[in-house]
Nucleic acid binder design. Structure first.
Length: 559
RNA sequence: GGCCCCUUCGUCUAGUCUGGUCUAGGACACCAGGUUUUCAUCCUGGUAACACGGGUUCAAAUCCCGUAGGGGUCACCA
């Protein structure tokens, strides 16, 4: 007779500290923990918990907690216990699940941690030191070994283990440290698999010691059995540094310094410049804060953004919200980060949450750090956009415009009947949402705001080379277009170009390129008929006229 | 610096546990050609890696030892 063991439930959690936005690396940790719990959802008791580790009173904020809830939901990750899934709810007062509360500050208030501190103190496992409480390590406890699902067996000698603080002194509000709170909470919440970043690998000996000590001292040792530890490797920048929030600050700082030619007094020059541009907007900015940011004494995210806006610079995407801002799709972000350090074991690279839920196994997580490759992310994003039904793309881009692009939101093309035509013209050449907007800015520009620069080689070739052959064709076209009807102008103009090209025996590109240049200032636009339709006859003729004038002037000057 | 960990194309990785079928596969990027009125898409082809040095073995990307490089940690931050 063999005993049939029931499959054990899998309880995982994501436990960020609400000290800022959700980092893309944190999102991957959350994704792995979510996927592993969901893979075992058929086993009763399996669940995924979201908990806030806010034992650092100074840096934690409710606004950050809200932002993390919002970003998790944007990605499509849900949880069974923790703050309410309602983004507008208060993550501290409105929570779901019965093992709560789900923030450590609240749990500390309820005395949850103190009772175990007392237990350890009484048993001589811990002692007071300058107002704080430390757990005895070293010879008292001996060597510590544990098994990690990714990194395998790890052993540390007693001599290398130092006593560590488990409760802060008065200065820290007598709150438990992260090391203590994480162990108590994971045990009390029944967490079976602790999935987290590898920066905690070295800390795990501390946690193992705590589990073991508590198992000895309580009457329910099973509740204090060590969980399965799963440490995930880090996500790095192409340069080799760890991908971190500070990267945005560094990028803003060095761009500012560069724009001032690295002059010795660049900091004060920058402060003057930015303060001025702010005061004209009526916002005002603290020049002392700004200065300390520029001197690298702090890395405040919003100051980095202020500088980026001032410079017209796009900061590197680091937080989930940055990727949303830059026009990446949530399902693509999830797909891409899942592939950073994990793979299904075959050549399948494109998958969704359902696939991940079915396939996610711990032993397929790699040990080596991986570099974040925005090119590949962008490529995935473009593939996904191309594969979407046209109507979905139209809505998606419209939502993006409403949220982030007032310039397009107020433009006629967005509000009139042409939005669908624009979207279908750009969908297959879109990698990120802002890309078609920026590439086709001439569509929402005033007719006389188009700049003509005849120096780039492709423009010279199409217009001014061979004694202005292109310019002559454009003049011919202006006359031909003049007689065309306004309705369906683009289509008619396209026909006319075909006709002229055929009768004169030339390549239609010879006609098309000068028109492109005239209406957009560049040689690249969506198909010409659509582009001209979007612009309309009046605008096209006006732009051709301006372009012709500019071209003739340019050729005279260079004759 | 002490301790812990990692190392396959430029990048993400398959293959390593259970040595041979790996003249190392896929993806992104890159290059070339084709399709295309531009750009892009799409199609075809190509360049490109087992960090290094020893050992074990008939046989090593795969096992062992060492070296180098990289990461983490050593906070009353998490």
């Amino acid at each position: 007779m063999s005993a049939v063991t029931d499959p054990q439930p899998v309880v995982t959690r994501f436990a960020p500290s609400p000290t800022g936005a959700l980092h893309i690396g944190g999102a991957r940790t959350a994704l792995f923990a979510w996927a592993y719990a969901r893979k075992h959802r058929d086993i009763p008791g399996s669940k995924f918990i979201l908990r806030f580790e806010d034992t650092d009173q100074k840096r934690s904020s409710k606004a950050s907690a809200r932002g993390i809830v919002r970003d998790m939901k944007w990605l499509g990750l849900d949880w069974d216990e923790g703050p309410s899934l309602d983004e507008d709810a208060d993550p501290y007062t409105d929570q779901i699940g019965d093992a709560g509360p789900y923030t450590q500050s609240q749990r500390a208030e309820q005395g949850i941690y103190d009772q175990y501190i007392d237990l350890l103190l009484e048993a001589g496992e811990a002692y007071e030191d300058a107002g704080a409480v430390r757990l005895k390590m070293g010879e008292h406890r001996g060597d510590i070994a544990f098994d990690d699902a990714v990194f395998g067996h790890i052993e540390v000698k007693a001599a290398d283990l130092e006593d560590f603080v488990i409760r802060k002194s008065e200065d820290g509000g007598r709150l438990p440290t992260f090391h203590f709170a994480v162990v108590i909470d994971d045990a009390l919440m029944g967490v079976t698999h602790v999935i987290r970043g590898q920066e905690h690998l070295s800390n795990t000996t501390k946690h193992a010691a705590l589990y073991d000590a508590l198992a000895k001292l309580t009457d329910d040792p099973m509740a204090w059995a060590r969980p399965v530890w799963v440490h995930t490797p880090s996500i790095m920048n192409p340069g080799g540094s760890k991908m971190s929030k500070r990267d945005k600050a560094k990028a803003a700082r060095s761009a500012m310094k560069n724009s001032l030619n690295e002059a010795s007094d660049w900091v004060s020059a920058a402060v003057d410049q930015i303060s001025e541009s702010f005061s004209t907007r009526g916002d005002g900015i603290d020049s002392f804060e700004l200065g300390s940011f520029l001197e690298a004494k702090q890395d405040t995210a919003w100051i980095a953004q202020v500088i980026a806006d001032h410079l017209g610079l796009r900061l590197p995407e680091i937080d989930v919200d940055d990727f949303k801002n830059s026009g990446y799709l949530p399902e693509v972000c999830l797909n891409y980060i899942a592939l950073l350090g994990w793979n299904p074991g075959d050549d399948i690279e494109r998958f969704d949450l359902a696939f991940l839920t079915e396939k996610f196994l711990l032993d397929r997580i790699g040990k080596a750090n991986s570099t974040f490759d925005r090119d590949k992310l962008r490529s995935f994003n473009g593939d996904t956009i191309r594969a979407m039904p046209a109507d979905d793309f139209t809505c998606l881009l419209a939502d993006y415009v409403k949220a982030y692009r007032p310039d397009w939101h107020n433009a006629g093309i967005f509000n009139g009947g042409d939005w669908g035509a624009f979207c279908s013209a750009v969908q297959e050449r879109t990698e990120t949402l802002p890309m078609p907007l920026d590439a086709n800015a001439y569509l929402i520009a005033e007719d006389d705001a188009i700049d003509y620069d005849f120096s780039p080689k492709p423009i010279r070739k199409a217009m001014t080379n061979s004694n202005g052959a292109g310019v002559k064709l454009l003049e011919e076209l202006r006359a031909a277009f003049d007689g065309l009807p306004e309705a369906n102008f683009g289509h008619a103009a396209h026909e006319k170009i075909n006709e002229l090209a055929e009768t004169s025996g030339t390549n239609m590109g010879k006609y098309a390129q000068p028109v492109r240049i005239a209406v957009s200032g560049s040689t690249v636009t969506p198909p010409l008929d659509v582009t001209l339709d979007l612009l309309g006859k009046l605008a096209v003729l006006k732009r051709i006229g301006r372009c012709l004038a500019a071209a003739n002037k340019h050729m005279e000057a260079n004759a």
